[in-house]
Amino acid sequence: MTAGQRRLLQGALLLAATVAATSAFAADVARQLKWADLVPKTMPAQPLQGKTFFGGSTPAPDGGPPPPPLAEGTFMSVKRRQPGNDRPPAVVPELDGQSVSIGGYVVPLDFDATTVKEFLLVPFVGACIHVPPPPANQIIYVKTEKGFEVGGQFDPVTVTGKINTTVAFTGLADAGYTITADTVEPRTK
């Protein structure tokens, strides 16, 4: 093999390695999602209505008397009324298995002091806690191996990881999606 052929072969190998590395990097880049991306295009979009913390209670759906107060310590064990909970959640199956990134607010489920390992990611402050939960396709159940330190309860975060369309049933609400998080980072407003 001549010196010229050797340089040509080295150049071709370098080019192939560069293309392979670029392709692998492109495959790992997380798709930026908005909450509307979680609703199938065949469904009519209904804007989520955030409610204020002091917005008052929701009247009973049948116009009857309000439900009795909950016993001390049972708040997390009572399933909340959730739009569409009488049928499977309408999810976008094409998202299954993709690497994604989405911003939202944390509703902690499993935590140790200020470290959270499991939580619901919701599109607006107070969802599932102070107001009835949004539809299941607007709630994401998030698991993170390492956990993350919670700042303020109403601080937004960005979650990056693999999403799947497995329904998660929690004590607060059903989630139409699950993300195994690689990172959970505070989001600048």
Results as ranks from 00 to 15, higher is better:
K34L: 12
Y105I: 00
T2A: 04
D86L: 01
V29W: 02
A168H: 04
S101A: 13
Y105D: 07
M1C: 03
Q46Y: 01
F124N: 13
V116A: 09
K162F: 00
T22E: 08
G152T: 05
L48I: 10
F111P: 04
V157P: 11
G103I: 05
K34N: 14
Q153R: 13
F169C: 00
F119K: 09
A12E: 11
A3Q: 11
L121R: 05
L121S: 00
L95I: 11
T183K: 15
L33Y: 12
M43K: 14
G84L: 02
F148C: 08
L120D: 13
R187Q: 07
P132T: 07
T144G: 15
I140Q: 04
K51D: 08
T158H: 02
V150Y: 09
T180D: 14
T74L: 15
D112E: 12
T170I: 01
P61G: 13
V39D: 02
G176L: 01
K41H: 07
A60R: 14
L109T: 03
W35E: 06
I163Q: 07
A60H: 14
L14T: 04
K117P: 03
L15R: 02
A60L: 02
D174I: 11
R187D: 00
Y105Q: 05
I163W: 00
P88Y: 07
E72C: 03
F53P: 03
P65R: 15
S101G: 08
V107H: 05
E185Y: 01
D86A: 03
K51G: 13
V157A: 11
P83S: 06
L9D: 05
W35M: 01
S99C: 00
P68A: 09
D86V: 02
I102R: 02
